[in-house]
Design a protein around this nucleic acid. Sequence first.
DNA 1: CTGATCGCTAAGCGCTTGCTTAGCTTCACG
DNA 2: CGTGAAGCTAAGCAAGCGCTTAGCGATCAG
Lengths: 201, 201
Amino acid sequence: MSAVTDPLVWEHVQPAAARRLLTGAIDAFAERGYQATTTRDIAARAGMSPAALYVHYPSKERLLFEISLYGHNAALEVLRSAASPDRETPSERLRSLVAAFTAWHARHHTIARVVQYELAALSPEHLAEVATIRRAISSQIEQVLADGVADGSFTVTDLPGTTLAVLSMSIDVARWYTPHRGDPEALGALYADLAHRMVQA
Amino acid sequence: MSAVTDPLVWEHVQPAAARRLLTGAIDAFAERGYQATTTRDIAARAGMSPAALYVHYPSKERLLFEISLYGHNAALEVLRSAASPDRETPSERLRSLVAAFTAWHARHHTIARVVQYELAALSPEHLAEVATIRRAISSQIEQVLADGVADGSFTVTDLPGTTLAVLSMSIDVARWYTPHRGDPEALGALYADLAHRMVQA
DNA sequence: CTGATCGCTAAGCGCTTGCTTAGCTTCACG
DNA sequence: CGTGAAGCTAAGCAAGCGCTTAGCGATCAG
């Protein structure tokens, strides 16, 4: 699974000063929340004056949007590669999806916290853009559950409700996870098992 | 289960103006978050001038603390009455606990949102006070899982991890629940079933 | 050498924030 | 009838907010 070694690297953000602002903003938003973070704080983390932020980003909200967009796409990518068609049974695919999604939320809990808990601070247009990615994410889980029901390997009485519960469990990892709570891989394996038990026939 | 009809009523907050401020603050904090809510906004919801807030509460943070404390105690009470000893088997008790805890987060999703997502805005002293209640809450789940393992009705490889996962699933309901997503009771029943499947031998 | 561009800083603008002050009205009670 | 407490408002203070402006040095194409 590519998530295992996925370093979530930022080299594509150029120039380096813009990258420092972006990563500083991720840390600050994750720690204190968007509203409690000041542009002065973000600039200080990047080692610049407050005005330099506006050379690279037109507003604080835009910084949040770029973080949120990138984070959502990264999470979706992790799911897509975990659901690759070489996993043959719905059981295998579900375990792989849940393990990867959970481990991603643990390993990247800072950006995951921004992705999952700062949606309300986005402008309506930016929120709409991110919402389409969120629908694609939940479709990945819903589809594999539907496949398992279809071939008889899963028993699910409420498909949308169970989809949400499985996603929910993984997403909430971003709220409480810290590195001292164990290895992201081990957590992914545990959650894969729990999710599988939730649905198996 | 008492949660079914639990109205979460505020008559004990006196005088009525203090109650209006408190409930207005719950709505505002849940909608926009603590940091994005202004004292002027809270006062306006209670139909008063901003200064009137300080007649009843010494600070905005204190308002948050009283909400958080009351909410945590209410959630713990719901669990305690759901675990009453007339439920004989661990399976029955687990289902009852998860159903009640989940339904509480759905029915009271506004205060639950404040309880679960605004901890970081509390002062260190107030956070510590609330943290003891949180430990009591997770103990309720951990104990019933341990009982089930002891009598052989549950199979759990990672007890703290599974405890957290069960709690997590219910807590996350506060993040996404809106009344149009269905009846809190039905959701509680679904989650009770999913949690039971996660652990049954 | 010139002039434009880039990345940056110092200063600060207009506004909003949590909270305070001074003072008004209402009303229970001796 | 007088007094003081309770509950409120209008006004405003100091601090901090997102963001803008003016300008500086480095870089580099023509």
